[in-house]
Design a protein around this nucleic acid. Structure first.
Lengths: 341, 341
DNA sequence: CGGCGCATTGAAAGCGCTTTGGAAGATCCT
DNA sequence: AGGATCTTCCAAAGCGCTTTCAATGCGCCG
């Protein structure tokens, strides 16, 4: 069933039917009702491509997710972020278009999406401290919103981010207040902006406490359980091992925990762990009393807000850019306690 | 830059340019080269919507992912499956369209995608033992491929699935061969087809060994670490506790491990664990020697194959349906050992 | 040399929608 | 009553592409 058929069915012109369906005022209420009823009855929906062609809007938004070349890793955070964004798109009638790309090849994908008019805008994922993508997107005039920030880029742009620095500063301070003096940082890849900010938060708190930052206590790599395990094991093997760990994700925390136990230590007594928790739906960090003390921020919520921001931006490309900084909460679980004497 | 402009630029008609770009034989090689060069130079790409409208093909494929209503859970497997599918789509020029839907509301989404011509086909995720979606998709004549199978549906359809039954049967047998007689099953939600098949595999092996299946040793729910933890704890508290666990995912295995350790037991010595491992990129189950003994099957590979199958099906809707059954491998890690005497 | 076949190009219609620019009839005002 | 003004509808153009059908020019054969 297409518009023409529907209108013939009703004895009206396509013009009138189109207007009735799209809420234009120059249709009498009576015919509008008649049209709406018929549309419902025949399950008529305007053809996406035809509508897009006529209006010049794709009504869809691209998510280009980088897959690192070496280890073909998909960010675990991705599923929940997407789920949040999808909620918003559904409300506003947008479609989500997903494509993956080996990192480095983003430029082609962006250009192609733009040139083909496949999307109205783009969400930029996994942004690095230095990231050429933002400038590129500016050049090709494709509206975008960034999940995260790019410190080294100084153009104006819209983003949604967690206050990573303050979260890790607070978390570090929390451990310091418990008497810990040697705190291991198991961070994400510090080329990534969020990880870098977390590092700065950690260092700030350490230095404010008058302690020197020990490079042997800082490790950074992609956030897997394996990296957590290896880093923690190495640090626990030091002559002067840490009494606490700060972890960049629940997944690395699992690895750290593993190493802690293998060393015959008990989490929450001999060793404290604070982790960042992205509130992923399938890794729940316990129930009422969380297993891990954690800085928590919902990545799904970030997805929702990024999508809203972008939709707004597309509707109003000349409005000033907007930024949303989400504060993480610090929830206390069973993985932390006073530093052993 | 659109076709018209490009053709004027070249002093040719849009017809010829279109033909040159799409590889039709009735253009001279000289002009074809000229056209291709100009297209590259101006970064011309045909407008997706216009092309789709003209050809009647959307060149895009829908992934409708159900989000359970109660706990808003996104399947952790999802990211890697999608990544695999996206690889294939990229090769064939398809776009991936993602939408989420509260379970139960799938019908609307499918109908809408079909009526609007937004997609050429659909991948069905998280299929249940009884699942009305397959029949529905048949009715509305939307080509689809299922990731998994639906036992209670007896129409013909195309699917890609892991041989869950045989995988779990082998895993159970492996534990039996090690002398274990009481084996706890921490399964996924058994409304889901894959979990049900795993259960049948487990039961088959148990019964083949002449042992009765003990319902107290079988637990089933969504695969979270919390569920793993709770189930294992409960079973370990039984008067006659299991000496081994079979887990439906690495994530539940983490919870089981947790409970095992809290009970003062050592994995691989006092208690054996075998888990299914979907080979997710961010949960690597160790390096050369896996931490967990596991039945392993790459969900990313499944994504690739599902996508291929669907593309083929779209090109050739009347060909007989195809099925692909992936065999899981059983890799031995450090989590299993002979049953304690 | 006229006509045929082949190679190459174009004009124009059509995909399903929106939207501009009327037009017809109803309503209102003087 | 008769023009002005709404109200309500429609014809037709246009979005950027593909594809059918036709046209042109060329070499070649008898």
């Amino acid at each position: 069933m297409n518009l023409k058929e529907l209108s013939q069915n009703l004895g009206l012109s396509p013009t009138t039917v189109s207007r009735a369906l799209n809420g234009y005022p120059e249709v009498s209420e009576a015919t509008r009702q008649r049209v709406l009823a018929a549309a419902r009855q025949h399950n008529y929906r305007p053809n996406t491509r035809a509508k897009g062609l006529a209006t010049g809007q794709a009504m869809s938004i691209g998510h280009v997710i980088p897959i690192s070349r070496q280890d073909a890793m998909v960010n675990p955070v991705f599923g929940d972020f997407i789920a949040g964004a999808a909620e918003t798109y559904a409300r506003f009638g947008y479609e989500m278009i997903l494509s993956t790309v080996a990192d480095g090849d983003e430029a082609d994908v962006y250009r192609s999406l733009k040139a083909r008019g496949a999307v109205d805008g783009i969400v930029v994922h996994e942004v690095r401290r230095e990231d050429t993508r933002l400038e590129l997107l500016g050049e090709i005039a494709l509206p975008f919103v960034v999940h995260g920030r790019s410190s080294e880029y100084d153009g104006e742009y819209s983003w949604v981010d967690v206050n990573n620095r303050s979260a890790f500063r607070r978390a570090t301070r929390f451990l310091l207040d418990l008497g810990h003096r040697r705190i291991g940082l198991v961070n994400g890849d510090e080329e990534m902006d969020f990880a870098w900010r977390r590092r700065r938060g950690y260092e700030a708190a350490i230095m404010e406490a008058g302690i020197a930052v020990d490079p042997a206590l800082c490790s950074s790599a992609q956030m897997t359980d394996a990296h957590g395990y290896r880093s923690a094991r190495a640090m626990l093997g030091l002559p002067n091992p840490p009494t606490a760990f700060l972890s960049a994700s629940l997944i690395s925390a699992l690895g750290i925990h593993q190493a802690v136990q293998e060393a015959g230590l008990t989490m929450g007594r001999d060793i404290s762990i604070v982790t960042h928790d992205d509130a992923l739906s399938y890794l729940q960090n316990g129930g009422d009393v969380p297993i891990y003390t954690a800085t928590r921020s919902s990545v799904r919520q970030a997805g929702r807000q990024a999508a809203s921001l972008l939709i707004e931006r597309i509707a109003n490309p000349d409005a000033p850019h907007r930024q949303e900084l989400l504060e993480a909460s610090l929830v206390v679980g069973r993985s932390t306690g006073p530093a052993p004497a």
